[in-house]
Design a protein around this nucleic acid. Structure first.
Lengths: 245, 245
DNA sequence: TAGTGGTCTAGACCACTCG
DNA sequence: GAGTGGTCTAGACCACTAT
């Protein structure tokens, strides 16, 4: 059965008609994941309306998670969401492979600075402490969907910036330093992409992302590192399955 | 230290100036949670621009979670987010009280029908099975922030529709039927509000919500009920703290 | 009835991407 | 250089809310 918005008592708006029309094209399978939509100008000719109205319709479908945009490149049909369990110890590449998709990670940059602001708060640091910050971008089937910032206390991770940082950091922590994640806490927050994140993900400034802040503790219970993930919101769903403790 | 968008190399756009100006008014404490912003027309006079530009700025701040709107009523400053752990067995009213806020629940309607579509999929039902559907609206400090739909198999919950349904259903399950939640699985999905949800939450159709689908199993491991929660996205953050299993 | 946001028209220029 | 979305102007009418 096709999902459909509730039958309207009022005649549907122009906006509603455009949304329904494009939605049906996608859900009927005529367009599939990654395919490019006609340009806003073409659509405004097709639907005999202005670009503003077309854009309002596209933004609504984007909010649904049905389509997404690459800044100044165009609108595309969203592939299926990745199912992500932040509690699982499975690595990113493994998780994506398990879902028959192709993962890739690129290192954007690393830097070392004194913890401040959001970083200091997440790491629960009260005095000036040097931290390493590692910025990476993750791709699924060639599309940039996840920007990740890792913050590591320098004293716990000597020489880590010389390692291959496109692989799993959790794996590196275990192999090089013998650290296991014993406990982790994470927050999920729907918000807007900060400037540098928007740029990396090809989002326009102010577009929506799903932010996940995570703090990891190692086997002796002390705080190990924290991580800020910014997901394209149409690319992911979070799934947690837990027995009662 | 105040959080601030990265210093722009290009001169900021009109849009950026308006966002920064309103953001500062809010973060400086001049406006606080629940307070109404001037109307879009007043703002367009103040900033000497059109309503479209003003609206773009307001929508961006809404995405950040800084402000929200009540359809055709106006724009308001968002109160602090509620911190919500879906794994916790704490009841809604208890959770809100613990965060020094005021909770309220109203029953919208109940109905009994054959499971189909999303309900049947969530309950993993393969044949026609009658279910009770309970729709409720939850308020925090007087603001409608959460629309909840519960789906119960009729055979497990005889007579439940005659009970007081504004309290905790989990509590009712335990007291009246002796059912304990042993395991639960939930999904978190950023998406758009369906029509009936948008209406209940005073959202415009197509606005963003955080959808949480939950399935509960009782002590003998069999499926008990499922629940669809739709949160105003600025009202909540999800926090999960878990030891390694 | 006055005021609000929701929808819509008919354009325009700009920054950026891509071939 | 052609094409894209991002931003912006200057209006308009409508559905709905609040009083």
């Amino acid at each position: 059965m096709a999902i459909q918005t509730k039958t309207q008592t009022k005649s549907p708006t122009q906006l509603g008609k455009i949304k329904t029309s494009i939605r049906q094209q996608i859900q009927s399978g005529m367009m599939s994941g990654g395919q490019k939509l006609p340009s806003e100008r073409e659509l405004s000719t097709l639907f005999e309306t202005t670009r503003i109205t077309i854009k309002d319709a596209l933004v609504a479908l984007e909010t649904e998670g049905l389509i997404y945009r690459e800044e100044r490149r165009g609108w595309y049909v969203s592939p299926q969401r990745i199912c992500y369990n932040p509690l699982s110890r499975s690595h990113f590449h493994q998780m994506i492979r398990d879902q028959h998709r192709i993962a890739e990670t690129r290192l954007l940059n690393t830097r070392t600075e004194m913890a401040a602001g959001e970083y200091a708060a997440a790491l629960n640091i009260r005095q000036l402490t040097p931290i390493h910050i590692i910025e990476r971008l993750r791709y699924i089937d060639g599309r940039a969907v996840l920007f990740v910032e890792n913050c590591l206390m320098t004293n716990l991770f000597p020489g880590i910036l010389e390692e291959n940082l496109t692989l799993s950091l959790t794996g590196l922590f275990a192999e090089k330093y013998g650290y296991q994640t014993q406990r982790s806490r994470f927050d999920v927050i729907p918000t807007a992409a900060p400037g540098h994140v928007a740029k990396a993900l090809n989002l326009a400034e102010g577009q929506s992302v799903l932010k996940i802040c995570r703090v990891n503790y190692k086997q002796d219970g002390t705080l190990m590192d924290c991580e800020f993930e910014y997901w394209r919101p149409d690319a992911v769903m979070i799934r947690i399955d837990s027995s009662a403790e």
